[in-house]
Design a protein around this nucleic acid. Structure first.
Lengths: 337, 337
DNA sequence: AAGCGCGACTATAACGTTATAGATTTTCCT
DNA sequence: AGGAAAATCTATAACGTTATAGTCGCGCTT
């Protein structure tokens, strides 16, 4: 076996090279106020020359700081998920910081508090990024109570008190309803995820507002997640359209839902663009390419990832500051085919 | 601020509760041969009662073992990437092991050795999982030389000597060509990623084999990545079809490529299913829903993730064993609409 | 009965870092 | 000039773990 460890330099190495004591070297590198400028310069010069990188385990053991941010990942969409974009944009943003990203998954069937509690109790990260936020998310309550740094991708009822990134789904609901109504549609249905999810509530609120004002019907088909098999969603839609044949517009919160809706509509005998229109939201411009009749709105997940990463760092390093918060309106994403 | 750290129990806690010395407790929990059975039982009982979890920083500092597996992530597809599936399936597989997964991204423009070298030199993981493998991947050469544990998602020319997971792209190339030819197509074009990528070479080999045997034309449109903007790919396809109007079949290695191909064909005036056919590979059944004329083959990325995670653990814990390797044929993925 | 080996435990030290308190020198005030 | 205050450095200890060497008692051999 070749020499796998040419022995990484430590503070001790710098200490020996410079003649300063190890704690002095440490403090110099950490820019402590009681170290002379010349000393700092000398130490830093040596450190960068020999490529010194602090040993994470040493720092972590001594300070309790892990320099890790954990992405707590709920299952996502079986189809075009934005998980990939989220993960890679967060990882990229953290790349030039001291922080590493670890991914902690959990199953939808298990206690959502489990991974969160584990991280807090074993102190295995300095902050967490949570997705799939519920309006009264127990994880958020838990973390606020323990005052553990975190950011949410979505908003809770305690939104003023914690950092978040969210897309404006009230606005999406409005835009979707307006678009369908302006195409002459009069009886809309909204495919909604479980109502606990904050974006579901917002989307419904926005849609309802417009529907009432314009005096058109708006039905909710609740409890539809991207996690459900497409077949299940399709079956529900076919069934629904059988009972409500007057439906002529559908609002879908995801690519998965939209696909299911399109297939469902057509199998139920509703021709897309003629009998019924679909309006959808997606993370990647996709639907519009294949069914130009589908109007879509785009969510820039990479932007979300970058913000979440920065907000997490802010929550760790400046807990005294006001939490970073951003609400972004979804952009029009329908690309001409 | 509430009490955020109700002080996690350590070996010392168990030592005090049991009366045994700290090293004894440590050895008992690690099932060392020189500890009595009764002692082990007693220590284990206390440990599980008080919920002892070894402090990662302590272990890491002392042993040099990080209990971390790093996923080194090349950029992926702008559209339906499989990154999300890969990340979450790896994370899930590692969930009930001692290992955490950290994600290390890199930019396509920068030295691909950079993240790999960083991890090896700072010993920030016990193993690596690499994707986007080139046939003579310098990262693989580097890691083999240092005998650092790793697994590849794809194969190199040194394939016998390292663990890998790969989909059989020779087989995909054959299937794609056969399918198109059996539909009467006689002049095929293959949208290929950069030829360094191992799957590109395999796909081309498989396609060529069939094309020659059946005496039909097969052109390569090289250097097309999922990372390219769709617009760029489309332009190239339109341009190509202008110069080669006799082309009547296209083979696409990804959803992105297929979308670009479809749009490109139609803009160039070739009607899908009549003038030209498209055969594609995707990670999620998608294309078939929207353009039933497109035949697809499915890759089960979750299976890949699970295998890669296990192979990484094997590489760490049993470096003496033969490397775990798996080659999987892609399955038919066209779902009837 | 002295010596040996064995089983089962303990004492010590070390991994790399940083907090704390203390030491030394320099500066400056009166 | 004498002493206080500041500036700059060092010594020590500690975070939690485990490798190593050592201790102790006991049964066994000769």
């Amino acid at each position: 076996m070749p020499d796998r460890n040419p022995k990484q330099p430590t503070l001790r190495t710098i200490s020996e090279l410079s003649g300063f004591a190890v704690p002095t070297v440490s403090r110099a590198l950490n820019d402590a106020p009681d170290i002379g400028e010349k000393t700092k310069a000398r130490v830093r010069e040596i450190a960068s020359r020999i490529g010194y990188v602090p040993n994470r385990a040493g720092v972590r053991l001594r300070t309790g700081k892990t320099n890790v941010i954990s992405l707590v990942l709920g299952t996502d969409n079986e189809v075009t998920d934005h998980t990939g974009q989220l993960v890679s944009s967060i990882a990229r943003t953290l790349r030039d910081t001291r922080y590493h990203m670890i991914v902690t998954p959990y199953f939808p069937t298990e206690d959502p508090l489990r991974p969160v509690r584990y991280i807090v109790e074993t102190a295995s990260a300095d902050a967490m990024i949570l997705n799939r936020i519920e309006v009264e998310d127990p994880r958020v309550a838990f973390l606020m109570e323990r005052s553990f740094p975190f950011v949410t991708y979505g908003r809770t009822i305690w939104r003023e008190r914690h950092p978040y990134f969210d897309f404006d789904n009230v606005s999406f609901g409005r835009i979707a309803a307006e678009s369908l109504i302006s195409s002459g549609r009069r009886q809309l249905a909204l495919l909604a995820p479980p109502k606990e999810q904050n974006y579901a509530q917002d989307m419904i609120a926005g849609g309802r507002e417009i529907a009432q004002r314009m005096n058109v019907g708006l039905d909710i088909l609740p409890g539809i997640t991207g996690d459900d098999p497409g077949e299940t969603i399709r079956a529900r839609i076919i069934n629904y359209l059988g009972e409500h044949p007057e439906t002529d517009g559908m609002i879908c919160p995801s690519t998965t839902a939209a696909i299911a809706a399109v297939i469902g509509c057509e199998r139920a005998g509703h021709a897309l663009g003629r009998d019924i229109d679909v309006f959808a939201k997606e993370a990647i411009p996709f639907l519009g390419f294949f069914r130009p009749q589908i109007k879509t709105v785009l969510e820039d997940v990479r932007q979300a990832g970058a913000f979440l990463a920065n907000a997490a760092i802010q929550a760790i390093e400046h807990p005294e500051c006001a939490p970073l918060q951003r609400l972004v309106a979804a952009g029009q994403g329908n690309v001409p085919p």
